[in-house]
Amino acid sequence: QTTIQVRVPYRVVGLVVGPKGATIKRIQQRTHTYIVTPGRDKEPVFAVTGMPENVDRAREEIEAHITL
């Protein structure tokens, strides 16, 4: 297991999390990772935990939302 920090712009935190957390839950299920969402007043950084290859996939999925 490994944990990485995925930093995103403030404006996309809501996009990545999705309505009621649906998007981030879907990313967690698809990539078999555990993702901690940043709090409102915190740095916009997601903490992604899982097997290294799964963590990389989750990071790619999160980063895909940044380019939307």
Rank of each mutant, 00 (worst) to 15 (best):
P19E: 10
Q5R: 12
E53S: 08
P52F: 00
A58K: 06
I27E: 02
G21W: 02
I27D: 10
V16D: 01
F46Q: 06
R40T: 12
Y34C: 14
E43R: 04
A58C: 08
R57P: 01
I27L: 07
G14Y: 00
V8C: 01
Q5T: 11
K20Q: 09
E63N: 07
L68P: 15
N54A: 11
A58Q: 05
M51A: 12
P38E: 01
A58G: 04
R11D: 15
G18L: 06
Q1T: 11
T3C: 02
K25I: 03
V55I: 02
T37R: 08
T37Q: 14
T33Q: 04
P9I: 02
R57W: 06
M51V: 08
V17R: 09
Q29E: 15
K25S: 07
H65N: 12
G18R: 04
R26L: 09
T49E: 06
L15Q: 13
V48Y: 00
V45L: 08
A22N: 14
N54Y: 02
E60L: 11
H65A: 13
V16Q: 07
T49C: 08
G18A: 06
E63M: 15
T37E: 09
T33R: 07
R30W: 00
R30G: 06
G50H: 05
E53G: 10
G39W: 04
D56A: 15
M51Q: 12
H32L: 09
I66S: 11
A22L: 08
Q28N: 00
R7A: 01
R40A: 11
H65W: 11
V36F: 09
Q5I: 07
Q29C: 08
V48P: 07
V6C: 01
T3Q: 05
R26V: 03
V12W: 13
L68G: 15
Q28L: 04
T31S: 00
R26N: 07
T67I: 11
R11T: 13
I62T: 07
V45A: 02
P19W: 07
E60M: 13
R11C: 09
Y34I: 13
N54M: 09
T37M: 10
P44C: 01
Q5A: 10
V36L: 09
I62F: 06
V17M: 13
D41V: 03
Y34A: 13
A22C: 09
T49G: 03
E63K: 08
K25G: 08
K42D: 14
I62Y: 02
Q28I: 00
Q29S: 08
Q29L: 11
Y10I: 11
I62A: 09
R7P: 10
P52R: 10
T23G: 10
R7W: 04
A22G: 02
P38W: 01
T49M: 05
I4F: 06
E53I: 11
V48C: 01
I35F: 03
V6M: 10
E63T: 08
V12R: 06
G21I: 07
P44D: 01
V36D: 11
V12C: 14
I62W: 02
G39K: 13
N54H: 04
E53T: 08
I66F: 11
V16F: 03
K42I: 00
T3A: 01
T33W: 02
P38N: 01
G50V: 00
Y10A: 15
V48D: 06
V55C: 12
E60R: 14
E61H: 04
L68E: 15
N54Q: 10
V45K: 02
Q1E: 14
T3W: 08
T49H: 09
R26G: 14
R57L: 07
Q29R: 12
V48A: 08
I24P: 00
H65P: 02
Q28P: 06
E43C: 02
T33D: 00
V36E: 12
V45W: 04
R30K: 13
T49I: 13
I24C: 01
T31L: 03
D56R: 15
R57N: 09
T2K: 12
I27H: 01
N54K: 06
P44Q: 02
P9M: 04
R59I: 09
G50F: 11
E53Y: 09
R30Q: 14
M51N: 12
A64Y: 08
I4K: 04
V13W: 05
P19L: 08
F46H: 07
I24H: 00
T37S: 13
P52T: 10
I66G: 08
D56N: 15
Q5P: 07
V6Q: 08
K20F: 10
F46Y: 01
H65I: 14
Y10S: 15
T49W: 09
I35Y: 03
I62Q: 09
L15M: 13
V55S: 11
R11G: 15
A64N: 14
P44Y: 05
V17K: 08
P9W: 07
G39V: 06
R59T: 02
I66N: 07
V16G: 03
E43L: 02
P19N: 10
T33S: 05
E53L: 06
G14I: 07
A64V: 01
E63R: 09
E53W: 11
D41P: 03
E61P: 04
G21E: 06
V16I: 13
R11W: 12
E43I: 03
E53V: 07
G18C: 05
G14E: 12
Q28G: 08
P52Q: 11
Q5S: 12
I35H: 01
R30H: 11
G50E: 04
T31M: 10
V12G: 12
P52E: 07
I27G: 02
T2C: 12
V6F: 02
E61A: 13
T37P: 14
E53F: 05
R59C: 08
D41H: 10
V55Q: 04
V12E: 11
G18S: 06
P9T: 02
L68S: 15
L15E: 11
N54E: 04
V12A: 15
I4E: 03
L68K: 14
K20R: 11
G50A: 01
V16H: 02
L68F: 13
F46G: 04
M51T: 15
T67R: 15
G21P: 07
T37Y: 07
R26K: 13
V45H: 04
K20H: 14
I35P: 02
V45C: 12
I27Y: 01
K25D: 08
E63I: 11
K42G: 11
V36K: 14
V8L: 06
T31G: 02
V36Y: 01
H32W: 05
T33H: 02
P44S: 09
R26S: 14
I27R: 04
E60I: 12
T3V: 04
R57H: 12
I66M: 10
G21Y: 01
L15S: 14
G39Y: 01
M51S: 15
G21A: 00
V17I: 14
I35V: 03
Q5W: 13
V16W: 01
A64D: 10
Y10L: 13
I62E: 07
E63H: 12
R57V: 01
Q28E: 09
V45S: 06
N54W: 01
E43Y: 02
H32E: 10
T33K: 09
Q5K: 14
R30L: 11
R40N: 09
T31D: 00
Q29V: 10
E60D: 10
A22T: 10
P52W: 05
G50C: 01
I66C: 12
